[in-house]
Every structure is written in structure tokens, then in C-alpha cells.
């Protein structure tokens, strides 16, 4: 059995993925794409949690990833329902058009 990939590499990958997701959230104008970028960030956090769980030989990281996935599924269902409702109301999901709550 060859030696395992060091945890640092997984953490670096997770960092790059999180930065890409954050860039997507900041950069995109379409609400669905912003949402997809949030999913990327959640995935990078899952990756880091699983990597640390292996590093410390603990199961808690895996449990946490499991619950993050549960919450992500709930969040996507609600978020996409909201996006569809907003689209029906305003005929647009461009986030620059959604500014009723601006002060």
C-alpha cells in the first residue's frame, strides 16, 4: 500500500476551491450561479473536514460532513424555491434587480 497523500495537500486544494467559490459569489450577477458558488464553498469545507478527520483518526469530522450535506440539501431546496418565486414575481433573477431592501 503506497503512503497516503499528506493532509496539507487536501487543505491547500480546499483553500483554492473556497477562494474560487468566494470569487463566484462576488463576481456573478445571476442568483443561481451565486448559489452554485456557495455549494462549491460548502464542498471545500467538507473536503477539509474529511482531511482533518483522517489526520486525527477521528470519526467526528465525517459526522460533521454528513450534517453539512444534510443542511446543504435543505438549503438548496429552500433557496431554489425562493429563486423560482422571485423570478415569477419580477421576471428576473439578476441580483442587481433585487434591491427593494436597499436603504
Amino acid at each position: 500500500m503506497p503512503p497516503a497523500v499528506p493532509t496539507e495537500f487536501f487543505v491547500m486544494l480546499s483553500m483554492i476551491l473556497f477562494a474560487l467559490g468566494a470569487m463566484g459569489v462576488l463576481l456573478r450577477k445571476n442568483a443561481i450561479l451565486v448559489f452554485m458558488s456557495v455549494e462549491l464553498m460548502l464542498n471545500s469545507a467538507n473536503l477539509a473536514l474529511a482531511a482533518f478527520a483522517r489526520q486525527w483518526n477521528e470519526m467526528d469530522g465525517h459526522i460533521f460532513v454528513f450534517f453539512v450535506m444534510t443542511v446543504a440539501a435543505a438549503e438548496v431546496a429552500i433557496g431554489l424555491a425562493l429563486i423560482v418565486a422571485i423570478f415569477r414575481h419580477k421576471q428576473s433573477i439578476n441580483i442587481d434587480d433585487l434591491h427593494q431592501l436597499e436603504g
Binding site: 467538507n46 473536503l47 474529511a50 478527520a53 483522517r54 465525517h62
Partner: peptide, 15 residues
């Protein structure tokens, strides 16, 4: 795939 490399097969399947 990375989850499989981390020996988290169940999480890979759930993913």
C-alpha cells in the same frame, strides 16, 4: 473522488 482517497467511502457515495 477525493473523499475516496481520504478513506471516506460512505461520504463519497453520499456526495
Amino acid at each position: 473522488g477525493l473523499m475516496v482517497l481520504l478513506s471516506a467511502e460512505f461520504l463519497a457515495a453520499v456526495q
